[in-house]
Amino acid sequence: MNTRDLVLVALFAAIVVVLGLIPPITLGFIPVPITAQSMGVMLAGCIIGAKRGALAFLLFVLLVAIGLPALSGGRGGLAVFAGPSGGFILGWAVAAFVTGLIAERFVHPGNSEGRQFVGFFLASVIGGIVVLYAIGVPWLATVTGTPLIAAATGSLVFIPGDLLKAAIATLAARAVYAGYPLLPARV
């Protein structure tokens, strides 16, 4: 890994910390407020690619683990890993990696704008929602003893909010891709 990659990874981890400091937005039709930080996984994969995106999240999770309040709302420390949503936090790096893989495969500079939007949205939905829940929900079911089916059904409440996040991440990622492309191409 060259120094530029190392710096990109560190800067993106720092961006994710700052996204946690931005006040969350509330929308009328969704019960939970949307924090900008929760879009970080999708943004990381779509903007700096699979490998660097995953490393940025490993670094971010390390920051949380060693006791920095880097999560939105000033949360942090080992307690969040011991809690019910620990699996989601540990799943971020994998989710960012898968998001990046799909974005690298489907988004190329020569594509039409519409195709790039579709590529980023697919990557965000599969990596940032499907993969993340596939890790986080079974973990939650194991730790809290909630039956898996009930835990999975309960998580459906968050899906509309997550799709909205994927849409915002898609627009932002495409804006960055047009202005300062960093996503490696993969055939």
Partner: peptide, 12 residues
């Protein structure tokens, strides 16, 4: 988010 990320990563 767009401008924030572009401006930050340009420093890399």
């Amino acid at each position: 988010i767009g401008p924030l990320i572009i401006l930050t990563l340009k420093d890399a």
